[in-house]
């Protein structure tokens, strides 16, 4: 999802009888649903995994500004422009409080950002796809934010307090984002033939990347099992994916759009939709840096960082001068 394939660093999830007394006590708190707070004792692996997950989530918000930001100057009405600006600004805000949540675990924002720019830290695969038409802005809100909400609502109940609380606020804003995306799609689908075609084309391109946002199939993932034991992940990737598909198919029907999956079919027995297999090779390629826009996205962040260095240096130098002036005046 916004954090995909987060490494927990463990080889095997241990049962209570294999834990030290401290670990067992920690796990007991988690099992009882007591929130872990920044100053509490916690296993090093829990801390490290959370930093990875939260920072990856934060990076996704920041890089996530770019594909939609691409259409800020071309939004078709002033109202759409304002709404999109507010949405992309929200994403920067989400990034900010997620970085802050990670900082409560001892990570520094500078280090996290350096890891993003060096390519060491990952962000969600979804933001490496291009926004080619205005309908892509609708599709992102509808599908990408829709998928994000499904993942993030459970995180509001995760075991780490600052992350859970940040997510409450994020989710409120995400639901507005999803509605604006759906509204763009709805308007296009009720518009001219060209607009409908634009909407269908956007769905065709964004469907599978959105389905893959939930991360790889569960299989025997030790990371998923460990994260679930720690309650920093509450549902498996496949469960979240199913929920996303079940929720989205009727919406596509309502819009009169066709989901590009010939195997998609309602299954009376399971009460869920059956669906086809995404192209996982593509997923791994995008994650490894070989998606359509990986280079552009990272370069945009590097340019902002490097181009803004002199501005940040100036602000620091000025603050130092001011402090020195105050000290001199007080002396």
């Amino acid at each position: 999802m916004y954090a995909q394939n987060v490494d927990t660093g463990v080889k095997k999830v241990r049962g209570a009888d294999e834990m030290s007394a401290d670990e067992a006590a920690f796990q007991a708190r988690i099992d009882e649903g007591i929130k872990i707070e920044p100053k509490d004792e916690m296993p090093a692996a829990y801390r490290k995994t959370l930093i990875r997950q939260i920072s990856q989530h934060a990076h996704s918000e920041i890089v996530g500004q770019l594909p939609e930001g691409n259409w800020l100057t071309r939004a078709p009405t002033l109202e759409r422009k304002l709404i999109l600006l507010a949405k992309v600004q929200d994403e920067a805000g989400h990034g900010l409080y997620l970085y802050s949540a990670a900082e409560t675990l001892g990570a520094s924002r500078d280090d996290m950002q350096a890891d993003l720019l060096s390519g060491k830290a990952k962000y969600s695969s979804i933001f490496n796809y291009p926004t080619l038409t205005w309908a892509d802005i609708g599709a992102i809100g509808w599908l990408v934010d829709g998928a994000a909400i499904i993942n993030q609502i459970p995180i509001c109940r995760c075991s780490y307090g600052p992350y859970a609380r940040a997510m409450v606020r994020v989710c409120k804003e995400e639901s507005f984002h999803q509605r604006q995306g759906f509204d763009i799609m709805h308007t296009l689908c009720n518009g001219t033939e060209e607009q409908k075609a634009m909407a269908q084309d956007a769905l065709n391109r964004w469907w599978w990347p959105s389905v893959m946002m939930h991360g790889p199939r569960d299989g025997d993932s030790v990371n998923t099992a460990q994260s679930m034991q720690w309650k920093i992940k509450l549902f498996t990737n496949d469960a979240l994916r199913q929920k996303f598909i079940d929720q989205t198919v009727p919406q596509a029907d309502f819009l009169g759009l066709t989901i590009p999956d010939p195997e998609l079919e309602w299954n009376e027995e399971t009460g869920h939709y059956d669906f086809g297999e995404p192209d996982w090779d593509e997923f791994w390629n995008v994650l490894k840096g070989y998606g359509p826009c990986n280079q552009e996205r990272l370069q945009a962040r590097i340019d902002a960082e490097e181009g803004g260095a002199w501005v940040r240096e100036a602000a620091e130098a000025y603050a130092e001068k001011q402090a020195a002036r105050k000290a001199a005046a007080a002396a």
Partner: peptide, 27 residues
């Protein structure tokens, strides 16, 4: 608006976008 997502610092990005929002709203 073209600067949104490209600001010299995250806080500055948010603040500058606020100004863009205000100005387009007034327009």
């Amino acid at each position: 608006a073209a600067l949104c997502g490209h600001g010299p610092a995250l806080e500055e990005d948010i603040a500058m976008t606020n100004v863009a929002l205000d100005l387009i709203g007034q327009a």
